[in-house]
Amino acid sequence: PDFTLHWNGITIHFKGIDEEQFRHLRELLDRGVSLEELEELAKELIK
């Protein structure tokens, strides 16, 4: 499924991740993950 997340004025689209992965990403963003960390995470998910 696809998810869209609005965070700090940025709209991020996640394609092909499951709800569990999306929930994990939201928790990280709510905790204050940096954009660099988010990019690293995205690379991991894409593999």
Rank of each mutant, 00 (worst) to 15 (best):
Q21P: 01
L35R: 05
G9C: 03
H6F: 04
L29H: 04
L38H: 00
L25C: 02
E37S: 07
E20C: 06
S34G: 10
L41I: 15
F3N: 01
H24E: 09
L28K: 05
K43P: 07
L28G: 03
E27D: 15
Q21N: 09
N8Q: 10
E20M: 09
R23I: 14
L38M: 05
E36A: 15
E40F: 12
G9R: 00
E27W: 04
E20P: 07
S34R: 09
D2C: 13
E44C: 07
N8R: 03
E19S: 07
R23E: 13
E44Y: 02
G32A: 07
K15F: 15
P1N: 14
H6W: 02
H24S: 09
I17Q: 02
R26C: 12
L25K: 00
P1H: 14
G16Q: 05
N8I: 02
S34F: 08
D18L: 06
P1D: 10
L45P: 04
R26K: 15
I46R: 07
E37G: 05
H13L: 05
A42G: 06
L5K: 00
R31G: 10
G16F: 08
P1R: 12
E40T: 11
W7A: 10
F22V: 06
A42E: 03
I17E: 04
H13E: 14
I17T: 04
A42R: 05
E20R: 07
R23A: 12
L45N: 06
D2M: 13
H24R: 10
S34C: 04
E19Y: 07
E44F: 02
K43T: 09
K43F: 07
L41V: 11
I12F: 03
W7G: 02
R31L: 12
L29G: 02
E20G: 10
E19K: 07
E36M: 12
V33G: 14
L28W: 10
E19C: 05
D18Y: 04
D30E: 15
L25A: 02
W7V: 13
D2K: 09
S34E: 05
K47G: 12
E40V: 12
K15H: 15
L41E: 03
I46T: 09
G9L: 00
D2R: 05
F22A: 03
D18E: 06
I46Y: 01
E37Q: 13
F14S: 02
L45E: 02
I12L: 09
D18P: 03
H24L: 14
F3M: 03
E37V: 11
